Amino acid sequence: MNRHYSYEVTVAAPALDDLILAVHEVACQSGGRSPRRWRYGNVVGISAPRVRDLALATVQTKHAVAGRVVAAITVTLHRRVAVDVIFTLDDVAASAQFHCATKNSEIAKAQETSWAAHLVTETSAALNANDITTSVSCGCTSATD
C-alpha cells in the first residue's frame, strides 16, 4: 500500500518563533549522544541531522499544504532520510507540518515516516516543557487520493 503520512504540531499564533526554534533544537539534538536519538529498526541516528532551507515556491509543488506558508526547511538524516517541515500561520494558530521529503522505496518511506514522528514527538515535548500548549495530529493519504 502506497501511503503518505504527514504530521502537524500546532500552537497559538504568537508562539510561531518558539515553534520554529523548537524544531531546530530537536533536529540538532536527534543525533550524537543525546538520549533523544532517532531509532528505526536496527538503524540509529548517530550523526547530526542537516537542516537546510526549502524554497517556498518548491513547497507548493511538492506538498499539498493548507494555510499561509511562512517558512520551510528540510531536515536530513543519513543523507537520504529527509523530512520537509513547513511552517504555516493564520490569525489564530501557527503550525509545523512534517512531510516525507522523498519518494524512494517503501523502506526509505518507512524510515522517513519514523523520522517525522520522532521530530513531532520531540518538538511537542520541548514546547510543552516551556509551558507552550501544543496540539499534535497525523494525517494519511494513499497515492490514489
Rank of each mutant, 00 (worst) to 15 (best):
Pro14His: 10
Pro14Ser: 08
Ala15Arg: 15
Ala15Gly: 10
Ala15Leu: 15
Asp17Gly: 14
Asp17Ser: 14
Asp18Ser: 12
Leu19Gln: 02
Leu19Cys: 05
Ile20Thr: 07
Leu21Cys: 12
Ala22Trp: 06
Val23Pro: 01
Val23Tyr: 00
Val23Lys: 01
Val23Leu: 05
His24Thr: 05
Ala27Gly: 04
Ala27Met: 03
Cys28Ser: 11
Gln29Ser: 14
Gly31Pro: 02
Gly31Lys: 02
Arg33Asp: 15
Pro35Ala: 14
Pro35Lys: 07
Arg36Phe: 14
Arg36Gly: 14
Tyr40Lys: 07
Gly41Ala: 14
Gly41His: 08
Gly41Asp: 08
Val44Pro: 06
Gly45Thr: 10
Ser47Met: 10
Pro49Leu: 03
Arg50Asn: 05
Arg50Tyr: 05
Val51Gln: 04
Arg52Cys: 04
Asp53His: 06
Leu54Cys: 01
Ala55Gln: 04
Leu56Phe: 01
Leu56Tyr: 01
Ala57Phe: 05
Ala57Tyr: 01
Thr58Leu: 07
Thr58Ala: 08
Thr58Asp: 10
Thr58Lys: 07
Thr58His: 07
Thr61Asn: 12
Thr61Ile: 08
Lys62Cys: 08
Lys62Asp: 11
Val65Asn: 02
Ala66Leu: 13
Ala66Trp: 11
Gly67Ile: 03
Arg68Val: 15
Val69Ser: 00
Val70Gln: 00
Ala71Glu: 03
Ala71His: 07
Ala72Tyr: 00
Ala72Gln: 00
Ile73Asn: 02
Thr74His: 04
Thr74Arg: 04
Val75Gln: 01
Thr76Tyr: 01
Leu77Ile: 07
Leu77Glu: 14
Arg79Gly: 06
Val81Gly: 03
Val81Ser: 05
Ala82Gly: 12
Ala82Thr: 09
Val83Ile: 12
Val83Leu: 02
Asp84Thr: 01
Val85Lys: 02
Val85Leu: 05
Val85Pro: 00
Phe87Leu: 02
Phe87Trp: 02
Phe87Glu: 00
Phe87Pro: 00
Thr88Gly: 03
Thr88His: 02
Leu89Pro: 04
Asp90Tyr: 01
Asp91Ser: 12
Val92Trp: 10
Ala93Gly: 08
Ala94Asn: 06
Ala94Leu: 09
Ala94Gly: 07
Ser95Phe: 09
Ala96Leu: 05
Gln97Arg: 13
His99Gln: 07
His99Asn: 09
Ala101His: 06
Lys103Asp: 15
Asn104Ile: 13
Asn104Trp: 13
Ser105Thr: 15
Ser105Asp: 13
Glu106Ile: 08
Ile107Ser: 10
Ile107Gln: 13
Ile107Val: 10
Ala108Val: 12
Ala108Ser: 07
Lys109Asn: 12
Ala110Thr: 10
Gln111Lys: 06
Gln111Met: 15
Thr113Phe: 05
Thr113Ala: 12
Ser114Asn: 09
Trp115Ala: 00
Ala116Gly: 10
Ala117Lys: 06
Ala117Pro: 02
His118Arg: 11
His118Leu: 11
His118Ala: 08
His118Asn: 07
Leu119Thr: 03
Val120Arg: 02
Val120Gly: 04
Thr121Asp: 14
Thr121Ala: 15
Thr123Leu: 09
Thr123Phe: 11
Thr123Gly: 06
Ser124Asn: 06
Ser124Ala: 15
Ala126Tyr: 05
Leu127Glu: 06
Asn128Tyr: 13
Ala129Lys: 09
Asn130Asp: 15
Asn130Glu: 15
Asp131Phe: 11
Ile132Trp: 08
Ile132Tyr: 11
Thr133Glu: 15
Ser135Pro: 08
Ser135Trp: 12
Val136Asn: 10
Val136Tyr: 08
Val136Ile: 07
Ser137Met: 13
Ser137Arg: 13
